[in-house]
Design a protein around this nucleic acid. Structure first.
Lengths: 152, 152
DNA sequence: GAAAAATAGTTCTGATTAGAACAATAAATA
DNA sequence: TATTTATTGTTCTAATCAGAACTATTTTTC
């Protein structure tokens, strides 16, 4: 079995790029007195009638245990509210309050512009290629993980 | 200014891929009763005479405030030790203890194999291409960040 | 319909994170 | 040399993170 000598380098680069992106995005979001996960919840809920807890977690990649705390802090700030589901006694819907929606409308497009600057030098094809490479690695990880789960 | 409609998708994919990789790597490392940052420190120190605190932080991407805690926990486990610098009263060198080195020797190559499985379907050119794409995005982020730092 | 299994959220724990404030030391400057 | 400035590592805070245990409610299965 011959391991390419360079794959640890790729992975380091993945980590560094990820970290750099978070720092860049956070520098913008912190001006709103929100954390990155909090803002992520806001923009995920924007332009929706709200969504169940679980779906929100899947979209934002936030674990349910963490999500409880994030939502609570946003609720304290008056930006979101929990609404008990009528059909399922376990479930709740999270949605933006009026203040939360105001914030969303006021900041989202600017945030998009801010993030978009990163890709100033990218053509649509460039972006597409990058996405393809990431998606391939992502899928490779998932399928390797699956194989490893029930080894031999 | 025309923003490509797809860049949020790429970034989501970056986050998902990153998360998937961490989960995959952690599943292996947790068997050693170590966290990912802890193991990262171990393999960074492996095959070195130790290194100053600051350099270790740069290599592992761990902030100095966090690093203090990580090192302390590894010290408690008897895997690393702090050695005061002789020339600089502020500085310390961190290095593996004998037990730490044993662990490193025993687990590193296996860990490399484990991670290498992710790239089973990759040719060296594939890996190189992926790395190039990541590096480009990384540099785009850094340069955009620099421009934003002193705006107008 | 009753017991068992699955699901939604909460709570708890230990660790990491970024960031700021701080002490001690070293280096630069005047 | 004395003062100022920079650097190293620690400590502190508030938040996130994954994972496990737990409660309350469905849903499944028999």
């Amino acid at each position: 079995m011959d391991i390419p000598a360079t794959f640890p380098t790729v992975l380091r680069e993945l980590l560094r790029t990820h970290q750099a992106f978070l720092a860049y995005a956070a520098s913008h979001v912190h001006k709103l007195d929100l954390t990155l996960p909090q803002f992520d919840v806001i923009i995920t809920l924007g332009n929706t009638p709200g969504m169940p807890y679980k779906k929100l977690g899947e979209k934002t990649l936030i674990t349910k245990g963490t999500l409880t705390g994030v939502i609570s802090r946003l609720e304290d700030k008056g930006l979101v509210q929990r609404v008990a589901s009528e059909t399922d006694g376990r479930s709740q819907s999270i949605r933006l309050t009026e203040a939360g929606n105001d914030l969303y409308e006021r900041t989202f497009s600017e945030h998009l512009l801010f993030i978009g600057r990163l890709f100033a030098s990218y053509s649509p094809e460039d972006i597409h290629a990058l996405e393809g490479h990431l998606r391939r690695l992502h899928e490779a990880i998932l399928s390797t993980q699956k194989k490893t789960q029930l080894p031999q």
